[in-house]
Amino acid sequence: MTTEFPPERPIAHVYDAAYAGVPNWDIGRPQRAFVNLVEAGLVRGPVLDVGCGTGELALFLARQGYDVLGIDLSGLAIRQAAEKARWRRVPAHFLIWDALNLRGLKDAGFSFRTVVDSAMFHVLGDSERDRFIDGLAEVIQRGGMYCVFGDARDDETRLYGISPAEIRNRFRDADGWEVVFAVRTVFERRWSRNPAYFVGVRRR
């Protein structure tokens, strides 16, 4: 199922242009970190996949029996994801939606026990990261998990990428968050691979 809402941010057109071809980050399967997450029994449904792109992670999770909603700014990516779901006969759902407006999902009656993020947070600006986290607090159920994967940032003077230190700083205990794991791993792309971090945060 796919439902369309007009994207709010002009950057949607940038991603539409990327998905007119095959972006370097779209490897035709989920990143291994998320496969390990499922194998460890740490995913609980319903699941929200933010920045889902053409849907490989959402489709993988749906095949494991999870109720999954994938959202992305790019209407083209969402249409490709919905087409994959139809041809593969996988019951995943997709929605053109801005991940900076998660409160809107709450207002529409959605809540989730797991939110997965495969390389979305790591491209956000500083204020966008705070806005996204505020929205997460609205849609993640108590005891639910946010699992974020992105390029490793070893220089804290740069914004692009993620680091465990930044995640701990932004997801504060005082605000009801708890970092439960942080591992260094690899971000596989179609023509390259580079260091990455995978971090899990629980909503208390």
Rank of each mutant, 00 (worst) to 15 (best):
Q141F: 03
G144M: 08
V115T: 04
W25V: 06
R88A: 14
D49F: 03
D49N: 05
L73R: 00
N194W: 07
A81H: 03
R193K: 09
S192W: 07
R203N: 13
I167M: 14
G51P: 07
R86G: 10
Y146L: 14
R203E: 10
D134Q: 13
V201R: 00
G65Y: 11
R189H: 03
Y197Q: 02
L136P: 02
R79D: 10
C52W: 07
V186Y: 00
A165L: 12
L105Y: 08
N24G: 10
H13C: 02
T114A: 11
P91R: 00
A12E: 12
V50T: 06
N194A: 11
R129W: 12
D130N: 05
G104I: 04
V186F: 04
F121W: 11
A174E: 15
P6H: 03
V38D: 10
R129P: 08
A12Y: 12
S192Y: 03
D117T: 02
A12Q: 12
N101K: 08
L73I: 05
D134R: 08
L59S: 08
P30K: 02
D107I: 08
A165N: 05
C52F: 06
N194F: 13
Y197W: 15
D16T: 09
A12H: 15
G75P: 14
G21L: 13
R113Q: 15
D130V: 04
D98A: 05
R184F: 09
T3H: 02
V22G: 02
V199G: 00
V148F: 02
R153C: 14
L76E: 10
A81N: 04
G53Y: 03
D67P: 10
A17L: 14
G109M: 02
F149M: 12
I96V: 15
G55Q: 06
A174P: 05
N169K: 09
Q64A: 06
D49L: 04
